[in-house]
Each structure stands twice: as C-alpha cells, then as structure tokens.
Nucleic acid binder design. Structure first.
Length: 168
DNA sequence: CCCTAGCGGTGCT
DNA sequence: AGCACCGCTAGGG
C-alpha cells in the first residue's frame, strides 16, 4: 500500500535533493548524493497535476529551509509508513519552530515516555523527510550536537542557517 | 576525556 | 521469545 508514485529532483544551491511522492503526498526526501553518482532525473509514473502542485511546494519549502526561513506552506506529507511511535515523534518535530531546539529527552517526555530518549533518536534517524521535518533541531542533552543520519555537516548547516544555538 | 549500565522502539530470526 | 542494533543519558573515574 501507499507505493511511491514518482520521484522528482529538487534542485538547490546545495545540490539536487530527491523527492518521492505517493497518492497521499510527499513520502520521502533525500539529501543530494555525494559527488559522483547521479540519480536519474525522474522515475516512476509521470506526475499527476496534483503531484506537480505538491512538488512546487516542496521546492519552495526546501529552498526556504536552506535559506533559514520558515516555509509557509509545505506539501502534504505521507508519513503512513512509520509506526505509531515514529509518527508521534515526527509530529512533535514539526512543532519545533525555526531557530529553536529540543533534546531527545525533551521530545520523549513530551510524548509521555520520559525514558525513551534513545528511541526518539532512532525515530529521528528514520525520519523520511529531513529538512522539512526538522529532525536537525533535536540535540543531545547539554546542548551537544548529537547525531544525524544525513551527516553532521548538514545538521550544523541547517542550524546555523536558522540561527539556532548549537553546542559549545 | 573515557567507560559503563540502563533505557525504549524496531526489525530480524 | 530472543537479540542486536541505535542520532541517548546519567553517573563515575
């Protein structure tokens, strides 16, 4: 269920992201591949008019995020592939304003599971839509940077662009 | 700084 | 059921 309908490129000054859509919305956003390998420009079925509309929103939102601005209207997100816990985490992440940060433990507590900081980290790592779902705004306790599946350089860059305090 | 124990969720066997 | 992962954390050298 909820298969990928098509994959489209998102060109930015920082490289070409890749967006995957299902009938429900944006389901995956990948960072630009490391120098060298190219992804095919597009894959899957030809985008429907609806998906083309969503994709325009995706492009705007990603560009805005990379510029440190808060995108006004992101596309609908299809998070149905996640477990209930992961969806809870991803929802909580979307409530962190640009420039703000939380710790993994704080997110866990917010979800009523105070001991689940590590699980929150795992859920952040499973976030299919980085940048738009701002998993980079979650730091380790004590203001330390913590990890980032897309590479810590991205985490630092995104935090810096939105003027967040990140680490000593 | 390092190391250790304990933690919750997830996926594989 | 068991087990081995993890973007963690608190506590102790």
């Amino acid at each position: 269920m909820s298969q990928t309908v098509c994959r489209l490129p998102v060109a930015t000054p920082a490289g070409i992201f890749s967006a995957e859509y299902t009938a429900r919305g944006l389901a995956d956003l990948s960072f630009p591949l490391s120098d060298g390998e190219q992804s095919s420009p597009a894959e899957g079925r030809r985008p429907t008019p609806e998906i083309r509309r969503w994709h325009a929103l995706t492009i705007k939102a990603v560009l805005a995020a990379l510029a440190g601005k808060t995108p006004l209207q992101p596309p609908p997100l299809d998070l149905s592939q996640g477990t209930a816990f992961q969806q809870g985490v991803w929802l909580a992440l979307q409530n962190i304003a640009s420039g703000q940060t939380r710790s993994y433990g704080e997110i866990a507590a917010e979800l009523g599971k105070p001991g689940a900081a590590r699980a929150v980290g795992a859920a952040c790592g499973a976030n299919p839509i980085p940048v738009l779902i701002p998993c980079h705004r979650v730091l380790a306790a004590g203001g330390k940077l913590g990890g980032f599946s897309g590479g810590l350089e991205w985490k630092r860059l995104l935090l810096e662009r939105e003027g967040a305090a990140c680490g000593p």
